[in-house]
């Protein structure tokens, strides 16, 4: 499902550094500021509405994730009286992104929200926008050598560390803070999954001394998840829980558990998926899904751009919290993450 999102964020080689034992930090070691603290003061809204400001949304791809960000940004811009004059998707093509920027600049937008496709080629692509004084708010990545304030307003990203940590917390709670767990991680040099996987492992080691990771298996092809889970369960039939790197392979792990008639091994995974959520609301193996707040990503990007227009200072690096979705809050969790109703099958159990 979110493979594309994963792939793109992995391209971000010079990306937001975060050590395995650290919180998510910015490209130059900036401390993260929670998105909830970044809003447009009521007093500034009238000024923004009177300013006839405009914005362009230049995304890197089209997906569920981007749709939710786009919706968050559009709603916030509408609230602030800022007109969205251009929307484009580069389809992961750096050349198309450059063309999209040039085309959007014809409409003289006051703000551009974008995910720079890669630090190297994006540096030239956004240069004209910087020179024109457009307020740039970047998602998850920053063009090479760009400076906060002089070149861009802020970088906004998921709190990847929290996603992995919250997955550890929800699994630990479900198994009574002790027992044996399996760890199915993404075996590739992918920033997003690597950070989340490491955060899970670190949290278990640091915060849950009575939980032991007894089996670890990397996965690069989600289609192989069922085989991997079968092998893991064959060696460790008494596993209390399994962490699965994202929802796609988690569906395969669930298939393995069902085929084995296994009802005692609990599963935790990341990113929303209807089949996984259905298992969770039925009280079967899945105990929690941790997702990012995509809609909030869009909202805070728009708010940051608007703050820049009225001369307010912005933090350099803003993170959006992760949301732990369980059977008890599935409707609310879906709303918080994607800002839409959960699928009917999930709501009706």
């Amino acid at each position: 499902m979110k493979i594309k999102k994963l792939l793109i964020t992995t391209m971000l080689s010079t990306l937001l550094v975060s050590g395995a034992n650290a919180q998510t930090t910015g490209p130059n070691g900036e401390m993260a500021t929670p998105s909830s603290t970044v809003t447009v003061p009521e007093a500034e809204i009238a000024k923004l509405k009177a300013g006839n400001y405009t914005a362009a949304l230049l995304w890197h791809e089209q997906s569920d994730f981007v749709n939710a960000i786009n919706a968050g940004a559009k709603d916030e811009f509408e609230r602030l009286g800022i007109k969205v004059v251009a929307t484009a998707s580069a389809g992961f093509d750096a050349a198309k992104q450059r063309s999209d920027i040039e085309t959007a600049l014809i409409k003289n937008p006051s703000i551009i929200l974008a995910l720079p496709l890669d630090p190297v080629t994006s540096a030239a692509a956004f240069k004209e926008a910087v020179e024109m004084g457009v307020k740039l708010v970047f998602l998850s990545n920053v063009p090479k050598d760009y400076q906060h304030k002089s070149d861009y307003a802020a970088i906004v990203t998921d709190d990847l560390f929290s996603m992995g940590k919250q997955a550890a917390d929800v699994l630990a709670q479900a198994i009574g803070n002790k027992g044996k767990v399996g760890f199915i991680y993404h075996d590739a040099d992918y920033y997003v999954t690597n950070q989340r996987d490491n955060a899970f492992k670190t949290t278990i080691a640091k915060d849950y001394k009575e939980i032991e990771i007894v089996s670890q298996q990397g996965i690069s092809d989600p289609a192989r998840a069922e085989d991997i889970a079968n092998a893991m369960l064959l060696k460790n039939p008494d596993l209390n829980g399994i962490y699965v790197t994202w929802a796609g392979p988690a569906e395969g792990v669930l298939a393995a558990l069902r085929a084995n008639g296994n009802k005692h091994t609990k599963i935790v995974t990341l990113d929303l998926s209807e089949p996984v959520a259905l298992d969770m609301v039925r009280g079967a193996n899945v105990v929690g899904i941790v997702a990012d707040e995509a809609y909030e990503l869009g909202r805070v990007m728009a708010a940051t751009g608007a703050r820049s227009l009225v001369g307010l200072e912005n933090p350099a690096f803003i993170t959006v919290p992760a949301v732990t979705v369980t059977a008890d809050n599935v409707a609310e969790g879906w709303q918080r993450s994607l800002h839409r109703d959960a699928p009917k099958s999930v709501l009706n159990k």
């Binding site: 389809g91 750096a94 692509a125």
Partner: peptide, 16 residues
């Protein structure tokens, strides 16, 4: 021409 215009080369150039 892409490399000159983008001031960099990338494996996705031309793909689309």
């Amino acid at each position: 021409l892409y490399a000159g215009r983008l001031q960099g080369a990338r494996y996705t150039l031309g793909e689309a």
